[in-house]
Simulated scan of single mutants.
Amino acid sequence: MDHLSYSGLPFETQRAAFLDIVAADPLLGETLARVRAFALPDWLVVSGALYNSVWNHLTGKPTGYGIRDVDLFYFDGTDLSYEAEDAVIRRAERHFEGLPLPVEVRNQARVHLWYPRKFGQPCPRYTSASESVSYFASKTHAVGLRYDADGQLELVAPFGLDDIFSLRITPNRAMDNQRTHEAKGKRAQENWPEITVVPW
């Protein structure tokens, strides 16, 4: 397969290809089924496990190659305490036990509370799990999946999918995330040399 065979195609064509690739990946299929059963409010599987799986498919790499974990966002504004999120994280450890990849769970309603300490700059107070995706350091990484009420896979991709299918990491300047953009770009190129990183 030409690794750029979907590059530049209309969004709906790319969306169908993206969902087909993800649905056929055994690693993601089992993880998404477990996440659905976990039933967190406003949940979203985001980022690396998704676009890395697409890159593996496009470049002929084995399933799971280059993927360190699965990021699971949820949004619960009813209790913003560390203890409430920690209880969910501990429950998740038991629920996802036995999966090939660890599942990292984070309440997006709390990000604005710890982000300035960790990254030295303020962060918006998000209103949903999907809103936070649009602030990722690279537009390429801004992608999420969940099951809707009818059991269909629902895609969140505020910047579309062409960067993913073009194996191109494009900066998102919504926040000053240059270091993250460059570090993730460098790591991606080590695993997938076909990737180009657009300078900040």
Rank of each mutant, 00 (worst) to 15 (best):
Y6S: 01
S7N: 07
G8D: 10
G8W: 10
G8I: 04
P10Y: 01
P10W: 05
Q14H: 10
Q14V: 11
R15P: 02
A16G: 03
D20R: 14
D20G: 07
D20E: 15
I21G: 02
I21L: 14
V22Y: 11
V22R: 03
D25G: 04
D25I: 02
P26L: 10
L27E: 10
L27K: 05
G29H: 15
E30R: 13
E30I: 03
T31Y: 02
L32A: 09
A33I: 05
A33F: 07
R34N: 07
V35G: 04
R36F: 09
R36G: 04
A37L: 06
F38P: 09
A39C: 08
L40I: 06
P41W: 02
P41I: 03
D42E: 10
D42I: 11
W43I: 00
L44C: 15
V45I: 01
V45M: 15
V45E: 12
V46D: 10
V46W: 08
V46H: 00
G48V: 02
G48Q: 13
A49S: 15
A49H: 08
L50R: 06
L50P: 04
Y51H: 10
Y51M: 06
Y51S: 02
Y51N: 06
N52R: 15
S53P: 00
V54Q: 09
W55K: 02
W55F: 01
H57D: 13
G60L: 06
G60Q: 13
G60T: 08
T63A: 15
G64A: 12
G64T: 07
Y65R: 01
I67M: 07
I67V: 14
D71H: 05
D71I: 13
L72R: 05
F73S: 09
F73P: 00
F75H: 15
F75K: 02
D76M: 03
G77P: 14
G77Y: 10
T78W: 07
T78K: 12
D79P: 09
D79E: 05
L80I: 03
Y82S: 05
Y82P: 03
E83I: 05
E83R: 15
E83W: 11
A84T: 05
A84I: 04
D86W: 14
A87H: 11
A87T: 14
I89S: 00
I89W: 02
R90Y: 10
R90E: 15
R90V: 12
R91T: 13
R91S: 14
A92S: 02
A92M: 13
E93L: 08
F96G: 11
E97C: 09
E97A: 14
G98A: 11
G98T: 13
P100L: 05
P100T: 09
P100W: 14
P100S: 09
L101T: 11
V103C: 09
V103A: 07
E104Q: 10
V105S: 08
N107P: 02
Q108A: 07
A109L: 05
A109E: 04
R110V: 03
V111N: 03
H112V: 01
L113H: 01
W114D: 04
W114E: 01
Y115A: 06
P116S: 03
R117V: 12
K118I: 09
K118G: 00
F119M: 12
G120V: 12
Q121V: 04
Q121T: 13
P122Y: 06
P122L: 08
P124H: 00
P124S: 05
P124W: 00
R125L: 00
R125Y: 00
T127P: 01
T127N: 09
S128Q: 07
A129N: 07
A129G: 15
S130F: 05
E131W: 11
S132V: 06
V133G: 08
